[in-house]
Every structure is written in structure tokens, then in C-alpha cells.
Write a protein that binds this DNA or RNA. Structure first.
Length: 631
RNA sequence: GACCUCGUAGCUCAGCUGGAUAGAGCAACUGCCUUCUAAGCAGUAGGUCACAGGUUCGAAUCCUGUCGGGGUCGCCA
């Protein structure tokens, strides 16, 4: 039993004995960690019980404090400040609790016997990965590791968007302007090569349309297609009447879009998409080829980043799914059909609006296939939970999707969760591919590697390491810095990344936590042999305040993981890792292990050191960070 | 316009199921390597928790409004 649980039980008893608080009216007793500026380990706030005690907060706190002191040996003393009862835990309790650390990694984190899917990454195949994907991948992977550690049975999935107009853009540009260029012939990574042609397409179409757009905005454009012409004229009229800047720029964008869509290149692109859907062999063959280049490129980035997947889904296979569910929904009366044949759901009673679930021509929209894949995933794995790691710009989409699955009576719907995360901003604002302000994932990884290398060389501590070890160090160190930097901030919040300032290796960073580990490992290497399991040290052994701090934190390992897993929040693991590393570094400066002459104390400190190292290694592995033995 | 979300030190972020004197790191300044790895430790300085009301014994935290940033409101994904 946890120390605080024992104390809570005694406080509860105190309320009964002192103030005749009955079981039914017993408040939930919470112990808080005592703030460092006050003396004590746990604090009981008595304000909520003064109504029962009918005494002042100070008197109440003193009453309870005295009772606790008399009824348990877990507490050695207490002090009262206003309504705060600060309890000092008997150091014998701390010493005794350390014997549990031997096996603490996951000891009480029992199997949950629940299947959870974490879908993350989910890239488009027309462009290489960028910083936004990195946040997604790191969050997704870390979330999966966190849930595994918390006892869930996890499937990591990647739903690849390998079809659609955006891939056709790359394909068409390559076909027309690529002159047979391949990753082999150009020496370019496959995803970058395909991305290059996506940019070529955008540039060409801009060339083709910019004079026309000029004309169109001046009202001097016309289309042979009567429908288009009418839409153009309508928009133009609205534009002329528009007053607000926002509205004007929106209408101008509409016109640009209209003109762009009529451009020859865009028409050809749409024709290509139709050919693809019709199964045209030539198009399919090109599509297969270019996608294979992209996958090779992605795999290389994933592998360097250290993320993995158990299950891949491809939208080319899933995009038609969901139509059965549409039929089912119509029969159940969850959906309704409009005159043009389009199918909708009315969510106005849930505070949302009407949402299209299938087009008038019977084809799928985004949410149709998501309904289908939701069923597919759940049936394939028998999922209790299904987590989607997707940016917060899709909050609305997932709200709708989950509501639909609930209304369709899917039992797994309750376990659906959108792990929504904020964007990564640059100092200039949002990343925009059009303006070339995107931070490329591969470039960033390489820069981090070089930074790790130069910082390590500056310190000059790598004597005796061979090239393989050095490479391993730079690689792991660079990832530790990057991953920690990104995972440290609350996933829900947007975060800032400044490419001009390199990510720190000092202070609240991944390298700092890693460093703490290597310092401990160094001590353990130098210590003469000693054995596990831990023995209970003499209960009268005097602990330093630094040791108490470390022991307290080690005691919090499991609850930290449970909480972080429940909140789907790897950032909480980062905070814990920092707290532990800081506490150990303080202790490191406070007392020496190898110079300790009392063998009992020395062994206790070695055991505590090893437990701390194990704990650090474990928390870092949740973040996808691998430790090194020397740095 | 409607809805969602964020606003904490010069900068990047914790703290938010209400609790004490709001915490870290970076940057600045002071000390500490003949002592287990100084990628470290100790210290100084830096705050009207955007603003205004309200609820409460108690509000950075909950409620309302205002201002400011961002997002969403496609038969795109």
C-alpha cells in the first residue's frame, strides 16, 4: 500500500472519531504534496471539514494532526499553518518503500486487457514529411508507448492517403516535365522527388493562370461553360458589392479557384483522377511507381525518427468503404436523403448542423470512408479504444464522426478519442508550403545530428569511443533533444519552433535527462560488484533531503503513468522525467557514493542510483528516447 | 457572422478535477571542476497570471463579458 493511502485511512478514521463524521457524509480525502517552501511531505487541507468539526481551521488541523501522530507510525511530526496540516513522513517509511523499486517498472501497472489502436502519421503521398508531421509522429508513437506501459494492448496504425487529386498533380507534372527522372537517376530521396513535381505542378499552373486570374478579377474573363460562366458572374457581383476585407479576399479566392480549375493542366489532372478511378492501367502503373518511391522515402524518415507501425491502411483500399453504413443509417433513420440523392445527418440537436455523409452521385466523402475504416479497424482487432492522432483543425470532423458512430449504435464508439494537437508555428507564423516556409523533416533531423555532433565535440568527452559509438551517440542525442523539445509541451496547445535558434542541449531538455542516466551508469560501472534484490536498509538510517526527494519521485512513477495515460498526455511524462533528473543531480552534488565508507549506506545509495537509472530509462523510452551509457 | 480554442517572467513552457508566498529552463549577473562525467550544482534578478466583473472561507484555475492571437464553419482530405 502506498504511504499516502495509509495516512488517508487514518485521517478518515480521525474524522469519524473526533467529529462523528459518518460514512455517508465522509468527504473524499485528498492529500496534496507539500510545497517545498513548507516543512512536510503531504498536506491535508482542512477547510472542507471545518463544518463538521465546528472549530477553527487551526484547531481542526491540530486535532487531526495529533490524532494521526498517535494512530500511525507512518507520520513522525506535523505542523499547521492556517488551514493546512503538513505531515512529515517517518523516514523509515521512505527507506522501506525503496525495496519495492527493484521491480517497480510496471509492477503495479497490471494488464488492462483492452485493445487500443493508435492511428497516427497518416501522411499524403505527394510531399515529404515536415515539422508538423514530426509532432504528429512523435506524439502518436509516444502515446502508444505510454498506453503499452500502462497495460494496454496497443496497435499502432498508419492510414496513408495515397489517392486523390494531390497525387495526380505530382504524377501529371512528372509525366509532362520529369523526363523520366527517378530516385536512382537523380540521387534524390523518393518522397522528395515526388514532392518536387508537386511543386512543379503548382508553379506551372500559376504560370498558366496568373494572367487569366488578373483578367478575371477585373471582370474580363469568360468561360465557354455556361454553368461556370454563371458562377463566375455571380461571384463577381458579390465581390463588387462586398465591403469587408475578409469577405473580399474570400471572394477573390473563389474566383482564383474557379479560373484555376478551368486551366488545361488542372483539367488534365482531373481527367487523370477519373482514369485512376476507372482503373486505367497506364495511370495505375505510374501511380504505383511513384507511390513506391514515396514509401521508400517515408520508411527512411520513420526509421531515422524511430517510429513504427503494426498496421498500414491505404485510402486507395478504404475510400469506398462506408457506403454500407450509409445504407444502414438510412434504414435506421439516422441519416436522411435529399432530393438530389445526397445523404445527410442532422446533428442540430447536438449543437452541430447538418452534415453530408454521401454525395449526390453516390460517391464517398471523407467522413464516409472514416465511418467505414472505423468499422474495419474495430472488427479486425476487437478494439476497446480507437485513438486518432490528428491536428486540431479537424476537431469538428471527429466530433461529427464519433457522434455518427454512437448514433449508429457501434459499441466501440464510446472508446473513440481524437488526440487533437496544436500546430507548430514558426516565428513568422504558420508554416506555408506555398511560401516555402516549411521545415522539412529530413533536413531537420540532419541538422539536429550535426548540432549534437558539434556540441559533443566542444565538450571533448568522447575519448576511446569508436566511430560506431560516436554515430550512435550523435543519433540518440539529437533525437533526445528534438523529441523532448516537442513532447514537453502540452499536445493540445500550439507550439513555437524557431529554426534560427537550435534546440538546447542544456537545462530542461532530453540531453539533460539522458546525462543524468549516464552519470549514474558511470558510478555503477566503477562500483565494486553488488547484488540485487534490494535489502531493506536499517530503518534508523539517516536519509539526506536529496535522497528523500528522489525516493518520493520514484514512488510517484506508476501514478504518473496512469494519469498521463488517462489524459493521453506524454508531456506529463516529460515533466516527471525532468523532476526526477533534477532531484538526482541535486543528490549527486550532495553526497558521494563511491567515497562512502559505511558499506550499508553505500549499498543503499547504489541501489537507489540504479533504481533511478532504470526509472529514467523507462520514462525516456515512453518518449521514444533511447539512452546511451556514456556521453 | 456563428462555433471552438489559446493569452502566465524579455523568450520557450509548467501549474488549471479551486487551496498556502504562481514554478522551471533559456537569455543576464555571482559563485563551485587536484572530489563518482561542469550536457552539472548553488545563488541573484525578473510577474497587475490579457482586461473587467461574478461565484467562494479561498480564483492563474470555475462562470459572464471585453480585447488580442489561432482554428473551423467545402458534395476537399
Amino acid at each position: 500500500m502506498k504511504i499516502e493511502d495509509g495516512i488517508i485511512a487514518v485521517i478518515s478514521q480521525a474524522l469519524t472519531d473526533l467529529y462523528a463524521v459518518g460514512a455517508s457524509e465522509m468527504p473524499e480525502i485528498k492529500l496534496e504534496k507539500t510545497k517545498p517552501i513548507f516543512e512536510g511531505d503531504f498536506t491535508f487541507v482542512v477547510f472542507p471539514v471545518v463544518r463538521s468539526s465546528k472549530k477553527s481551521p487551526e484547531e481542526t488541523a491540530n486535532d487531526i494532526g495529533n490524532y494521526v501522530l498517535q494512530h500511525t507510525t507512518k507520520v513522525s511530526s506535523f505542523n499547521v499553518i492556517k488551514g493546512f496540516l503538513n505531515l512529515v513522513v517517518n523516514s523509515a517509511e521512505w527507506i522501506q518503500s525503496t525495496t519495492a523499486f527493484d521491480t517497480f517498472v510496471g509492477k503495479n501497472l497490471a494488464a488492462k486487457n483492452q485493445k487500443v489502436m493508435v492511428e497516427y502519421s497518416s501522411p499524403n503521398t505527394n510531399k515529404p514529411l515536415h515539422l508538423g508531421h514530426i509532432r504528429n509522429n512523435l506524439l502518436g508513437y509516444s502515446l502508444a508507448q505510454l498506453l503499452i506501459k500502462a497495460g494496454y494492448d496497443v496497435v499502432m496504425a498508419n492510414l496513408i492517403n495515397d489517392r486523390g487529386i494531390h497525387i495526380c498533380k505530382s504524377m501529371l507534372a512528372w509525366q509532362r516535365f520529369g523526363q523520366g527522372e527517378t530516385p536512382q537517376s537523380s540521387g534524390m530521396k523518393g518522397d522528395h522527388l515526388v514532392g518536387k513535381y508537386y511543386v512543379v505542378f503548382e508553379n506551372k499552373i500559376r504560370e498558366q493562370t496568373s494572367p487569366e486570374i488578373e483578367k478575371a478579377l477585373q471582370g474580363q474573363w469568360s468561360s465557354a461553360d455556361a454553368n461556370i460562366q454563371k458562377r463566375y458572374e455571380d461571384t463577381l457581383n458579390k465581390l463588387q458589392a462586398a465591403k469587408e476585407d475578409k469577405q473580399i479576399s474570400k471572394l477573390q479566392d473563389d474566383i482564383k479557384e474557379l479560373v484555376r480549375n478551368q486551366a488545361e493542366l488542372m483539367q488534365a489532372c482531373q481527367a487523370m483522377l477519373r482514369d485512376w478511378e476507372a482503373g486505367n492501367e497506364e495511370v495505375l502503373s505510374l501511380w504505383n511507381t511513384m507511390n513506391s518511391w514515396v514509401y521508400e522515402g517515408f520508411e527512411s524518415t520513420y526509421s531515422r525518427l524511430g517510429v513504427k507501425f503494426d498496421q498500414y491502411y491505404y485510402e486507395s483500399n478504404t475510400y469506398k468503404l462506408g457506403k454500407d453504413i450509409v445504407q444502414e443509417g438510412l434504414q435506421k433513420g439516422v441519416f436522411f436523403q435529399k432530393e438530389d440523392g445526397s445523404v445527410w445527418i442532422d446533428l442540430s440537436s447536438d449543437g452541430l448542423d447538418e452534415k453530408l455523409v454521401q454525395r449526390g452521385d453516390g460517391t464517398s466523402v471523407y467522413i464516409t470512408q472514416d465511418m467505414g475504416t472505423a468499422d474495419l479497424k474495430a472488427n479486425q482487432f476487437g478494439l476497446n479504444k480507437s485513438i486518432y492522432v490528428v491536428g486540431n483543425e479537424q476537431d469538428y470532423h471527429f466530433k461529427v464522426l464519433f457522434l455518427i458512430m454512437q448514433k449508429m449504435g457501434r459499441s466501440y464508439a464510446e472508446g473513440m478519442y481524437h488526440a487533437s494537437y496544436g500546430m507548430v508555428d514558426l516565428p513568422s507564423g504558420k508554416m506555408k508550403s506555398r511560401e516555402g516556409t516549411v521545415v522539412d523533416a529530413d533536413d531537420l533531423l540532419e541538422e539536429m545530428y550535426q548540432t549534437a555532433k558539434s556540441k559533443t565535440e566542444e565538450l571533448g568527452k568522447t575519448e576511446g569511443m569508436d566511430d560506431a559509438e560516436l554515430h550512435n551517440l550523435y543519433h540518440r542525442l539529437s533525437l533526445a533533444a528534438l523529441k523532448f523539445f516537442i513532447l514537453k509541451v502540452d499536445p493540445k496547445k500550439r507550439m513555437l519552433f524557431n529554426p534560427q535558434e537550435s534546440i538546447d542541449f542544456q537545462g530542461d531538455t532530453g540531453p539533460f535527462v539522458m546525462y543524468t542516466y549516464t552519470r549514474i551508469r558511470s558510478i555503477l560501472r566503477q562500483a565494486e560488484s553488488w547484488t540485487r534484490p534490494m535489502e531493506a536498509a536499517p530503518s534508523d538510517m539517516v536519509l539526506s533531503s536529496g535522497e528523500v526527494q528522489v525516493i518520493k519521485l520514484l514512488n510517484e512513477y506508476e501514478v504518473t503513468i496512469e494519469n498521463a495515460a488517462r489524459e493521453y498526455n506524454p508531456a506529463a511524462i516529460c515533466q516527471y522525467a525532468l523532476d526526477l533528473a533534477k532531484a538526482y543531480n541535486r543528490l549527486y552534488n550532495e553526497v558521494s557514493i563511491l567515497k562512502e565508507t559505511n558499506e550499508v549506506i553505500k549499498k543503499f545509495r547504489l541501489e537507489l542510483a540504479e533504481s533511478t537509472a532504470t526509472c529514467i530509462k523507462s520514462t525516456l523510452s515512453i518518449l521514444g528516447i533511447e539512452v546511451v551509457e556514456r556521453m
